[in-house]
Amino acid sequence: MENQKEYKITVVIISALLGLILTASLAAIFRPVSDGTGCIADIYQDGNLLASIPLDGKGAPYQFTVTGENGCFNEIQVCPHSIGILSADCPDKLCVNQGFIDRLGLPIVCLPNKLVIRLREADSGAVDAVAY
């Protein structure tokens, strides 16, 4: 009988823990995201900041290519308000399929080529833009 009680407590604790983590995660996912007008796109390769591109709505769209070790590449398209990866040589193309990002939140990550594009607000950490 005592064993049965202990078992029930274990089950309740594990379920409560999982429920808590799930609720916290969902709350974090659906929290309001600030819109990215005037944000800056940071492009990281292998953890190093390659470039910081302001997405302030000025200028015409343009493309450039980031190459990495073993000749891998990601072709990046910069639009006035968004940034995305047009093509890449990685096998899964997850970075391309993620499309264009235009607000703070999820970064574009290309794991095979170790490339990360992340948006941040323009006024936060302006000094970081020169920290190459």
Partner: peptide, 11 residues
């Protein structure tokens, strides 16, 4: 990737 940014995926 040694990028802390991927931890945004945590939730």
């Amino acid at each position: 990737t040694s990028t802390a940014g991927v931890l945004v995926y945590l939730p």
